[in-house]
Design a binder for these strands. Structure first.
Lengths: 136, 136
DNA sequence: TTACAAGTTAGAGTCAACTGGAAGTCAAGA
DNA sequence: TCTTGACTTCCAGTTGACTCTAACTTGTAA
């Protein structure tokens, strides 16, 4: 069980930010100690680390919330609950997941393109200035 | 030659945003018509489209400015100017380019990771609910 | 029991990145 | 000439994502 500052240290988010994420619903409310302090499970840490990655990819907190919320049903299924309980919404959830997958794929393609541009530039620089660089 | 609203239409940025980018230095000042209206070349459009891609990848406008500015020397070299004119700064520029390349690579790896997570989820959903979906 | 570190809430402040309004200019067609 | 529409500048307002302050509480060690 971890305090907010331990989670802060492990994830790189400040306690301010962690409380803010809770407030806007990106993180759900954790258990509390008798004194009222937030107490986190290890799983919260990996959740936040995953969240950080999505943030780095340029997703907004709203998109991240949508993306990670899809895990809720998954968690329940993995915990042994009957998937047919969720049947009415499952199809929609799969559609959302597929949308995200396509979105990620297209971002990956854009990254590949940017990498190829940057590599091209780099090679040209290096070839054009090989001697200059050796001399500096 | 294009007006600001034509550029807006082609790039998906509003005229407000285009002027804002000019103001903060992300875009350089375009030529003006006799009446003082901004006039853009086609190349500006592809520049902005490239800029949009970098923005989608989560780079800040400051990072984008830094990234794209590296093209300036390249452009001059390609236009036939002697690269040794730029010699003192070339090494540093290559270092910056390499830094960006590594940054892009690491973002790509994170995306691959997120894609694999999403794919995993999707497969599980579909397997667990194959019949339910057929019946809806 | 007191001092202090680390937590709490509510709410204000900050910063990047737009977004919009006001008031004015300019060119082309009726 | 007048109107219309698209532009101009200047500047204030908004949104998303934090970040901090103030005032207070709790737990622990001296």
């Amino acid at each position: 069980m971890l305090t907010i500052s331990q989670v802060s240290e492990k994830t790189g988010l400040t306690p301010y930010t962690i409380r803010y994420y809770e407030k806007i619903g990106v993180l759900h409310e954790p258990k509390r100690s008798n004194g009222g302090a937030r107490v986190y499970k290890e799983s919260e840490v990996s959740y936040i680390q995953c969240l950080n990655k999505l943030k780095k990819l340029g997703l907004s907190l709203e998109e991240i919330t949508e993306f990670t919320r899809e895990g809720c049903v998954m968690d329940k299924i993995q915990q042994g609950e009957n998937p047919s309980n969720y049947n009415p919404t499952l199809k929609k959830r799969i559609e959302i997941l597929e949308k995200h997958l396509m979105e990620l794929e297209s971002r990956r393609q854009e990254i590949e393109y940017m990498i190829s541009l940057a590599e091209e530039k780099l090679t040209l620089y290096q070839e054009l200035t090989k001697e200059d660089i050796v001399n500096t």
